[in-house]
Each structure stands twice: as C-alpha cells, then as structure tokens.
C-alpha cells in the first residue's frame, strides 16, 4: 500500500506562536502518524516566496499586536495565493489573532489596523477582556477551548463555525463563534483547539485526504483519553 502524504504550511511561526498553538500542529501530526499518513510540516517565514503548490493545510496561530501587524504586512505578498487556496477548498485554520487578521480590520493599540482583507468580517475593540473556558456547538459536535481576546468580531454575513453554549465567542453579543467558509476555519479557541477536539482534527485530515486522494473514510483511533479530558472540562463548567 502506498504511503499517503499530506503537507501542512505553518504561516509565520516566528511571529504567531502564543498560547500553545503549536499543539495544533502536533495534534495533526500525531493523528496522521497514528494512521500511517505522513504529514510534512513546512514553515513560511517573513520575506519567503510563496511556494504553496503541495500544501494541503494552512495554519496561522495567535500573536501579540505588534507581531500581528508585521505578519499582515508580509502576508499581503501571498494574499492572492491564499485566496486561490481558500477558493479551491484547501484547509486554512486560523486561531485568535491569526483569525482576526484575515478580516478587513482588527483592533490594535491606538485604533484599528488594516487586516489582510481575505474575508469581509471585521473586529472592533471591546471594553472588556473576553477570557475563560468556552463551549461551542457546531452542526456535528461540541468544541471545548479557552478564549482570551479583547476584540469583538462581526461576521458581516459570513457563516459562523458554531454557536456559543458557554463563554463569549466572536463578540459576546450574537452567540456566534468563529467563521466557516468552505474549508477555512477561523476561531478564538485556544486550549489548544485540536488536541481537545479530535473530531475537528480528524475532519481536517479527512478533508485533506479527500482533496488530494479522493478518499472518504478515515481509520478510527482510540480516543478514550481525549473523551475523558473533554468530559472533565464540560463537567467542571457545569455542562454535563
């Protein structure tokens, strides 16, 4: 049997690497490895030329305000490439600050800063700090995580990733959390997101395999520890 191989591109890990988001990369890597799928992780740094033809999954993590604006500045050079990838249905996973910067603008020190403008959503400054554990319901499953942001994101007609069950989500007002457009997923969920939400992690792997090899089914893994960890969090939040 041939070894299936996927490629993931970690965008600006030198700038956007707060809050354990490399755990998302590790979760994708391990859950591929446990199924004998090879996941190559490449990094795209400031100043690098776009070389994305083999990339199946793009990942953008969170960063501090100054580093966010440096990333946006450089990202303008690869905006067209990312746009193509998104429209083709490739996966783009963006967390917190990385999610904000894909929109029109986002809150920053001393006013709003221009975002990449890849999507129409936008982020306004909030007067309170949205911080704490969060539970979100998507069509198929619950997501658990930890949010920590001072921006209020408004989707401007786009579809959310899910509905907030407990916590703040995009703006603390409309009960939406994150964004979902084709296979782009933007979210405020840290935790990190993927190790605690193996179904979402597997959905990403399944989409990548479908895109590349047209294979629909994914081998089941023993997730008993993941399930217990999720139950424990939900219980401590009074959700179960």
């Amino acid at each position: 049997m041939r070894v299936m191989k996927l490629t993931m591109c970690h965008l600006y890990p030198e700038l956007l690497n707060l809050y354990g988001d490399t755990g998302n990369v590790l979760a994708l890597f391990k859950r591929c490895q446990w199924r004998n799928i090879q996941l190559d992780v490449i990094e795209h740094h400031m100043g690098d030329k776009a070389d994305f033809k083999d990339v199946d999954i793009f990942f953008v993590g969170a960063g501090a305000a100054s580093e966010q604006s440096m990333a946006v500045h450089d990202m303008k050079n690869i905006k067209a490439n990312l746009k193509d990838a998104v429209e083709q249905g490739k996966i783009l996973l963006a967390i917190c600050g990385g999610y904000q910067l894909l929109g029109q603008y986002y809150q920053a020190k001393g006013g709003n800063a221009d975002g990449l403008g890849l999507f129409d959503f936008y982020t306004e400054p909030a007067d309170i700090h949205f911080v704490g554990n969060i539970v979100v319901k998507t069509e198929d499953y619950y997501l658990v995580g930890f949010e920590n942001h001072i921006g209020k994101t408004y989707l401007n007609g786009l579809k959310p990733l899910g509905q907030v069950i407990s916590g703040f989500g995009n703006n603390g007002e409309d009960k939406t959390e994150g964004v979902r457009y084709k296979n782009t997923i933007g979210t405020y969920l840290h935790g990190p997101l993927l190790p605690k939400n193996p179904k979402l992690c597997d959905e990403i792997i399944a989409i990548a395999l479908k895109n590349k090899y047209n294979i629909a089914n994914l081998e089941e893994l023993d997730d008993s520890l993941e399930i217990k960890a999720r139950e424990h969090i939900l219980k401590s939040m009074g959700q179960k």
């Binding site: 809050y19 354990g20 490399t22 755990g23 930890f146 920590n148 935790g191």
Partner: peptide, 9 residues
C-alpha cells in the same frame, strides 16, 4: 494562570 495551553509550549 487560568489558561493551561502553555502545557503545549
């Protein structure tokens, strides 16, 4: 610290 995501760093 209420956020434990640092365990992954």
């Amino acid at each position: 610290g209420r956020d434990v995501s640092w365990l992954w760093d």
